[in-house]
C-alpha cells in the first residue's frame, strides 16, 4: 500500500521541537490514515531519531492505535452481560453476515470496521450498537437491518 510520506513529514515537523511527543504524533498519523502505516512508523523513527522498537511498543500497547487499515465507519457491537442476554450475539451475527467479515475486521472496500466491545455503560439501552460514535439502542434484527440500510443509502447518495 502506498503511503503519502509527505503528509507524515508535515506531521513530524509539527512535533519536531517537542521532546518525547511520540504519542500525540502517532495519534495524528493514526487519524490521518486511519491506521499507523509501517512506512510512516519507519519515517518517524528516522526523523525523530527514536528506535523503531519503541514506536512499535507504543503502537501495540494502546488500543486507539491500529497497525492495519480501518474502515471509514466504525461499528462497535456491545457484548456486555446486559446486551448479551438481550440478544447481542444475534445482532452481531446479522452485522458480520451483512458485511461478510469477522469481528475485528474491515470490509474489502475499506468502508466498515466491525468490533465487539465489552460494555459501553448504557445497559438500559441494550442490545446496543455504537455506529461512528452514535449510540443505537433497543436493537432487534429488523432495526439492525434498518440501521445498516440507512448508512448504505447515505453512502449511495454521497457517491
Amino acid at each position: 500500500m502506498n503511503v503519502d510520506l509527505g503528509k507524515v513529514d508535515k506531521l513530524i515537523d509539527k512535533y519536531r521541537d517537542e521532546e518525547a511527543a511520540y504519542i500525540p504524533l502517532l495519534q495524528d498519523i493514526n487519524s490521518e490514515f486511519r491506521y499507523l502505516p509501517r512506512d510512516a512508523l519507519k519515517r518517524v523513527s528516522q526523523k525523530m531519531e527514536v528506535p523503531l522498537s519503541h514506536l512499535f511498543r507504543l503502537a501495540t500497547f494502546y488500543k486507539s492505535f491500529s497497525l492495519v487499515p480501518r474502515g471509514e465507519h466504525e461499528i462497535q457491537v456491545c457484548m456486555g452481560t446486559a446486551c448479551h442476554v438481550r440478544g447481542a450475539p444475534r445482532v452481531l451475527n446479522k452485522i458480520t453476515q451483512q458485511f461478510q467479515i469477522y469481528p475485528g475486521e474491515t470490509t474489502a472496500d475499506q468502508k466498515f470496521t466491525v468490533e465487539t466491545v465489552n460494555c459501553v455503560g448504557a445497559c438500559a439501552l441494550g442490545p446496543l450498537v455504537v455506529f461512528d460514535g452514535k449510540y443505537f439502542g433497543h436493537l432487534n434484527l429488523s432495526r439492525t437491518d434498518k440501521l445498516l440500510e440507512g448508512y448504505h443509502e447515505e453512502n449511495k447518495k454521497s457517491s
Partner: peptide
C-alpha cells in the same frame, strides 16, 4: 545502544519482540 527489541502488546499478550 541498538534497541532492536522491546516489549510489545499488553496484558496477557505482552511479550518481548522485534518491530512488527
Amino acid at each position: 545502544g541498538k534497541s532492536a527489541v522491546s516489549f510489545t502488546d499488553r496484558g496477557p499478550d505482552r511479550k518481548v519482540s522485534t518491530p512488527f
